[in-house]
Amino acid sequence: MCKVIAIANQKGGVAKTTTTINLGAGLVKSGKKVVLVDADPQGNLTMGLGFPKNLKVTLKSMMENIIMGLEFDPKEAILHHEEGVDLIPSNKLLAGMDMSLFTVEDREKVLKEYLELLKDEYDYILIDCMPSLGMLTLNALSAADSVLIPVQPQYYAADGLMELLKVVKGIHQRFNPDLQIEGILFTMDNCRYNNAKRNKQAIKTTYGSDIRIFEQTIPRTESLAETASEGVSIFAYDGKSKGADSYLELVQEVLKHA
């Protein structure tokens, strides 16, 4: 049975894309079939796996086929990465989809309808959401079984988290009654700093009784930052690093929660 996880936070720079790539690659290392969905017009996930920005067949193409009711091959957009993970790419042309969806009936379910055509092929579908709470993110959350929330342990993190959780609750009530919160993941964590410790504790105190908070945190490391320009996961780039170990631990926590 396929599980769809949206990786979302309206704040940028919290390692959503890094987490999507490395969680996906780690799940593949654990024997799972995984496809990653680039639902961000910036195309960082696509570029982060080493693919070009000028692709003709992308997530936008697939969603347009759904909107127009065309017959099409849902696998046409899928790219295969050398590490065994698949990708549905995006580029800046996806930006127009956010506005186009406003005129579409059942506009919040277009991505869900597309992903339903792929579920028999995969154990996990991971959606890398754009850093906003627009129509594309609403589509991702409506299509997902759960949402994983990367949070950088900074002073303002709790405010953004509260806003996102309100949106998740609204989508759960209106569009996707099965949507759960996979958990809050601390990323770019520097445990040596007292501020980071205090901010993590504040989030745990506020939300920990109702929401799962992953035991594993993702450290701020040079090797994780460098992978973005190398087109591979941390496992291929520096498999013995703290970053690689942390994502392997995260994979185990996600598998236990399946």
Rank of each mutant, 00 (worst) to 15 (best):
D128I: 12
I181M: 06
L138V: 11
K169I: 04
V167W: 10
E83P: 00
L126S: 07
N176A: 09
F102R: 11
E108F: 09
M130I: 10
Q201F: 06
D178V: 14
D123G: 06
V168N: 01
V104C: 07
E121H: 11
K166P: 01
A143Q: 12
D159G: 00
T217C: 05
N176D: 14
K112Q: 13
S209A: 08
V104H: 04
A157Y: 04
A196D: 07
K197Q: 13
D189P: 00
V110P: 02
M162A: 15
F186A: 03
Q201R: 10
V151C: 05
S90D: 03
D145F: 08
L165S: 09
I211N: 09
S146K: 05
Y207P: 01
D106E: 14
L111Q: 05
F214L: 02
Q152G: 02
L165Q: 08
D86T: 11
P89T: 05
Y122C: 15
T206Q: 09
R107G: 02
D159F: 08
I211K: 11
L118M: 05
P219N: 12
F186E: 06
L179P: 01
N139W: 09
N194F: 02
N195Y: 03
T217Y: 07
H172I: 06
Y207T: 08
L79I: 06
R220E: 12
G134V: 13
Y207Q: 06
N194Q: 11
P153G: 00
L185A: 09
A144H: 02
M130Y: 06
D128E: 14
P89I: 04
A144R: 00
Y122L: 15
L87Y: 05
K200I: 09
C191D: 14
D178Q: 12
V167D: 04
Y114D: 05
S132Q: 15
K109N: 11
N199K: 04
G134C: 12
V167E: 05
H80W: 04
H81P: 12
A95W: 08
L115T: 06
P150D: 02
R174L: 12
E182D: 07
H81K: 07
Q216S: 14
G96D: 12
N190C: 04
T137A: 09
Q154A: 10
V85A: 12
L111F: 07
I149K: 00
I125A: 04
L93S: 14
L138M: 10
R192L: 11
Y114L: 11
G183E: 10
M130F: 08
R220Q: 13
L118S: 01
N176S: 15
E215T: 15
G160R: 13
Y207C: 07
R174K: 15
E82L: 10
G170D: 15
L136F: 02
A140Q: 03
L136T: 02
M99A: 13
L138F: 06
R220T: 08
Q180R: 15
G84E: 10
K169Y: 15
V147G: 01
D210F: 14
Y155P: 01
G170Y: 13
